[in-house]
Amino acid sequence: MPWEHFQHMADIGIRGIGETPEEAFAEAALALTAVITDPAKVAPREAVPIEGKAPDREFLFLDWINALIYEMATRHMLFGRFEVTLDGNRLEARAWGEPVDRARHQPAVEIKGATLTELKVYRREDGQWVAQCVVDV
């Protein structure tokens, strides 16, 4: 599975796995949506651009997840498809989604923010990239 959740007692860890850091970032974003609802239920009707810049790749990942949390909160949207481009410690991305439909999405919980706990971006021994952190719900 290219994304997964990992256990943290009070909160939830999100992890994206991919051939490239970009893929790992995009998969982790799906894991983020999956905390709230089934990503397959989210129609990619509208694209939202997201940009970021950070001192290192881990903080860039933190900023990416926090940007998605902010866009979900202020636009009252959920996202189900992501396209990420990384250039050094810069990020350009688009997130596709639709407004929250409480009956259809049954959103379980709001996400407050991404934490530094278990924040890691690294390449595994099998060559796959991993991007992960715990999010506070």
Partner: peptide, 17 residues
């Protein structure tokens, strides 16, 4: 609500750095 969450998010990052 969202205001507190955002303050927490931003200062956590800034203070960590």
């Amino acid at each position: 609500r969202g205001l507190g969450h955002q303050i927490g998010t931003e200062f956590l990052r800034e203070m960590a750095l």
